[in-house]
Amino acid sequence: MKTTNSTIEVSNLCFSYEKQRVLENINFTIEKHDFLTIIGPNGGGKSTLLKLILGINEVQKGSIKISGQKHLEKIHQVGYVPQNTNINLNFPITVLEVIMMGQNKLKKRVFGYKKEEKQRAYEVLKKVNMDGFIHNKISNLSGGQRQRVLIARALFSNPKILLLDEPTSNIDISGCEQIYSTLEKLNKEITVVVVSHDISVILKYASRAFYINKRLTHHDLTKMKQEFKSIDSNICEIELLEMLGRCRC
């Protein structure tokens, strides 16, 4: 296992929901400036893995390290973009207010924002080409625009790693392309990890891919190899994370 330049190291990770084992003996390393995608079917454990890295779910066995230290100690280095399906799309809130939630600790100042806070919000919105929308109501934006605002929110605290959970679900093709182009641009500065089940698009942009499925069979493996070969991709190989350990195809 490589350790130089590694940003996330996962060793012998196991996780169960009550009696149902979801992840078993997962081992991998994510390197600096990787554009990594975690793919696999629904219920395969992709989002669970992400939530373990973020500390939303507690590690039951094994370990996760960020920049060589326990993940919870370095969690401020991680920016997170949740699934947009978990967010109330009609909520009355402006783009500026959403961005301000990206602060590591929410400021106790009640109403209004400081000039430097607004300046930072403008900077991160510019990175995702949304700087002209700072005072817009979030529900008036398209799905793709809304998702780029959530990426900007994750960038507010200057993370070294950006984790995204299904960032293109329920978003049209042009919106998807815009999101992935933005991520490709951001990847020059930070590590990007995207959980996705839409492999036809994500594999065009990602430099590495993990396939995760708690019930992977030989039939699935063969099918996936064929599917993978038919896609125009930058990836040379997909690393499989599954119950039996780790292999490459």
Binding site: N86, N88, I93, M101, Q103, K105
Partner: peptide, 15 residues
């Protein structure tokens, strides 16, 4: 505001 808009994210921010 943070809890109402995005509970999971608010939790990550220490709310």
């Amino acid at each position: 505001l943070a809890v109402s808009y995005d509970t999971e994210y608010a939790k990550l921010r220490g709310v």
